[in-house]
Simulated scan of single mutants.
Amino acid sequence: MTRTTPTRRILLAAAAATVLALGLTACGSDGTGGMGGMDHAASPSATATATGSAAGHDMAGMSHGPDGGMSGMDGMSGMPGTSGAAADGLAAEQGGYRLDGTLSGGEYRFTVTGPDGKALTSYRPEQTKEMHFYAIRSDLSGFRHLHPVMSPDGTWTAPLTDLQPGDWRMYASFVPGAGSGAGTGLVLSRTAAVPGQAAPVPLPAAAASTTADGYTVTVAGAPKAGAAGELTVTVSKDGQPVTDLQPYLETYAHLTAFHAGDQAFAHLHPEAKAAEGTGGGPTLAFHAELPKAGDWRLFLQFQTGGTLHTAALTLNVAA
Rank of each mutant, 00 (worst) to 15 (best):
G72L: 10
T128H: 09
L188C: 05
M62W: 13
T121E: 03
M170K: 01
T128P: 05
G221E: 03
G36N: 13
D39R: 03
Y215R: 01
A198H: 14
M59V: 08
P66S: 09
A227N: 07
A172F: 08
A220R: 12
P6L: 01
P241V: 04
A207H: 09
T121A: 01
T5L: 07
S138W: 07
A198V: 00
G196R: 06
V19T: 08
S63L: 09
A227W: 11
S63F: 13
A222L: 08
G142S: 07
T51Q: 10
G183F: 06
G84D: 06
S141A: 07
M170S: 07
G226K: 01
R124E: 15
D39H: 11
T102V: 13
F286E: 01
T32Y: 15
V187I: 14
L300V: 11
A311E: 01
G177H: 09
K292V: 02
G114L: 04
R98G: 04
S45Q: 03
Q301N: 10
A92E: 14
M70S: 09
V219D: 04
A285D: 12
A257E: 15
A199T: 12
S141K: 03
R109H: 04
K292E: 12
P80A: 05
D30R: 08
G105L: 08
M35D: 14
T310Q: 15
P159H: 03
P291I: 09
V219L: 11
F286A: 01
A135W: 09
G36I: 02
T102S: 14
L90N: 13
G34H: 14
T121Q: 03
L255W: 15
Q246D: 06
Y97D: 05
G142M: 00
H267Y: 15
D116C: 02
E126I: 01
L140N: 12
A312G: 11
R297V: 04
M170E: 05
A253R: 00
G81R: 04
L11H: 10
M1V: 02
T128E: 15
G33L: 06
Y252V: 00
T304D: 06
G89A: 03
A312V: 08
E271I: 00
R137H: 07
K237P: 07
T283H: 05
F258Y: 15
T47R: 08
P223F: 09
A178V: 00
L188T: 02
P176W: 08
M70V: 03
V149A: 11
A87N: 10
W168C: 02
G69P: 04
G181V: 05
Y248Q: 07
A46F: 11
T113K: 03
S141W: 04
H64A: 15
Q94P: 02
A54E: 10
